[in-house]
């Protein structure tokens, strides 16, 4: 069994520092395994959030050597043997302790998005949708809510404009509803105003870190921006709406 060197952030909102650990490692281990080993043998109170250990629940988001990742899917063999693996909490959210941050803000955003509002069922009691028509939405629904996209979003992380932008995760959530073939609600005004789709400046950092490889910007945010633009800023549409208003149309 080989040993590997780790630096892990320890501390809470009041402050902290990196602690160094030597960990016995074996073939096939991921960063989360090494952290569990530290927890079991060297630091029982080390705070880590984790659940499924298979990249399906999105709990163990952290920054590993500066990159936002799921610790359960990051193999130690991805790094040279003598390389120090540095682990710290995600930065866009307030620290609770060690590698755990307070992500409650994200859960508040979901409540602000108008829920799914389906059209009535067909005469036979069924909803019919073609596979081709739902594939875009299914891509968005792969999201495991790891919030790594929220972590790297410049608007949330660097500008701290959580007041103005719900973040890439919730753009994808809104897109999954807005592009749902059965849905009838209109979320475009909310996307323009309180959810703040215009704040995204399309640097695509969110897409790069998505462990589910969802094309967040290209397939989700940009089409939403286009919907907002064609509703509010298309001169022809503005003229048509005015005319409708003048002649009492709805």
């Amino acid at each position: 069994m080989a040993e590997r060197h780790f630096k892990v952030w320890r501390g809470d909102a009041g402050g902290g520092q990196f602690e160094e650990y030597e960990v016995e490692v074996e073939d096939g281990m991921v960063v989360l395994d090494a952290l569990h080993r530290i927890q079991a043998h060297q630091a029982n109170d080390l705070a880590i959030r984790w659940n499924c250990k298979a990249g399906k629940c999105g709990s163990c988001s952290m920054e590993i050597n500066g990159k936002p990742k799921l610790a359960c899917m990051n193999r130690l063999s991805d790094y040279p043997e003598d390389f120090t693996i540095v682990v710290q909490p995600i930065k866009a959210f307030p620290l609770i302790k060690d590698l755990v941050t307070d992500v409650a803000w994200n859960y508040e955003q979901n409540k602000r998005i108008e829920p799914f509002t389906p059209r009535p069922r067909g005469a036979d009691g069924e909803h019919r949708m073609m596979q081709d028509d739902i594939e875009r939405v299914q891509e968005f629904r792969k999201c495991i809510e790891c919030f790594l996209c929220q972590d790297v979003c410049h608007v949330l992380r660097d500008q701290d404009r959580k007041d103005a932008f719900a973040g890439p995760r919730f753009m994808i959530r809104a897109a999954s509803l807005d592009m749902h073939p059965l849905d009838t609600a209109d979320r475009i005004p909310a996307l323009k105003e309180e959810l703040g789709v215009g704040m995204c400046n399309i640097t695509k950092c969110c897409t790069e870190v998505c462990p589910e490889h969802i094309k967040i910007t290209d397939n989700g945010i940009i089409p939403l921006k286009e919907r907002v633009v064609s509703r509010y800023y298309d001169p022809l549409m503005i003229l048509l709406r005015k005319l409708k208003g003048l002649f009492g149309g709805t």
Binding site: Q39, N44, D45, L46, A47, K97, D98
Partner: peptide, 8 residues
């Protein structure tokens, strides 16, 4: 350790 997010 203390009671705050204490895995042990």
């Amino acid at each position: 350790g203390a009671s705050q997010y204490n895995a042990g």
